Amino acid sequence: MEKQNVTIYDVARESGVSMATVSRVLNGNSNVRQATKDKVLAVINELDYRPNAVARGLASKKTTTVGVIIPDVTDGYFSSLARGIDDIATMYKYNIILANSDDNPEKEATVLNTLQSKQVDGIIFMGNEINNKLRAEFKRSSCPIVMAGSVDTSYTSPSVNINYVDAVKDETNRLIEHGNNKIAFISGSLRQAINKDYRLKGYKESLKDNGVDFDDKLVFETEGTYDAGYNLAESLWKQKITAAVVTNDELAAGILNGMTDRNISVPEDFELFTSNNTKIAKMVRPQLSSITQPLYDIGAVAMRLLTKIMNKEKVDDRNVILGYGIVERKSTR
């Protein structure tokens, strides 16, 4: 018998039981005698039977599969979130389909529709920009969607995040306390709400509270990459900027190396605060001061929230805000 042709009918025939009994064994139903269960499991093992998830999904109207949309699988921020998602999915016996969207809103909409065509029970979305087209796709989705580490000013979907405004405000406050009054705000695209409406807002609030005038010439919108940071370093120094708040660790690492390669001492001559505290923050020298986010927990809580919604359980808070911290390392004084 060819393995790929083994069906639940074959298992039932070889075990001498009904297909319903085999199904109860597969689903962990306790209403099966142990001797019968052992016999069925032995046949399943002998035939190397693998239940057809699609067929089971058609029968139960559930595929126990969750789609996860990630903008860049190589990004330490999102991969840490994905670990938390996967662990909780495993705990609740859901399978994961991971889809890379290349941080492209057009592709995100396509990937969203592709996952729904696979009959996933729910979707966790990780992305940096929520545009109107994507919001419309969220609203017409046939399955629940939860956002993890992603913000939407219109609160279209449930989400799990930290308070990005307060976090950036705190790190900016510390740079001002260190005597800096010409502090740059350096981010990826300002089309992204997380940068424009949250992080930049926190930066502005800190300046205002400390009596420092806001200067839009100190706001730098970049591609958010290591190379963008590295190439920006010289310009920051020439403008006599003495410190920077940076929105992601790769960008911050580029600025750091750009400074040190130009013999500019960090933190004596230039202080640097980053935002995600991924492995990069601790791998570079000097190590980067950073906001500390519970990245694993953001993913885990998002997955748990999704399971509640999929199972129609009571949800007390659709937009969960987790705590954050600040760690000062060697890139600040």
Rank of each mutant, 00 (worst) to 15 (best):
N5L: 04
T7L: 04
V11R: 11
V11L: 07
A12M: 00
G16V: 02
G16M: 04
V17C: 00
S23F: 04
R24G: 01
L26V: 06
N31I: 05
N31E: 05
N31A: 08
K39S: 14
A42N: 09
Y49P: 02
V54C: 08
A55Y: 00
T63R: 02
T65N: 13
I69W: 04
D72F: 07
D75H: 06
Y77R: 08
F78L: 04
S79F: 02
S80C: 02
S80T: 06
L81M: 14
I88S: 10
D102T: 06
N104I: 03
E106G: 09
A109T: 14
T114M: 15
L115C: 12
S117M: 06
S117W: 02
Q119G: 01
V120Q: 11
I123H: 06
M126P: 09
N132T: 07
L134D: 04
R140K: 15
P144M: 10
I145E: 05
I145H: 05
V146K: 06
G149K: 00
T156F: 11
P158Q: 09
R174S: 03
L175D: 03
G179M: 11
G179F: 11
A184W: 04
I194C: 08
N195E: 05
K196S: 03
Y198A: 03
R199I: 00
E205Q: 07
S206Y: 09
K208S: 13
N210I: 05
N210V: 11
F214L: 02
T222Q: 03
T222L: 04
E223N: 14
A228K: 08
A228P: 02
G229Q: 00
Q239D: 14
Q239K: 15
Q239R: 13
K240C: 04
I241W: 05
A243P: 03
G254Y: 08
I255Q: 01
N257E: 15
G258L: 00
T260G: 11
T274P: 00
A281K: 12
V284G: 01
Q287N: 10
S289Q: 13
I291S: 10
D297L: 13
G299L: 08
M303A: 13
R304P: 07
L306G: 02
G323P: 13
G323R: 14
Y324N: 05
R329S: 00
R329D: 02
S331G: 04
S331V: 12
T332F: 09
R333C: 07
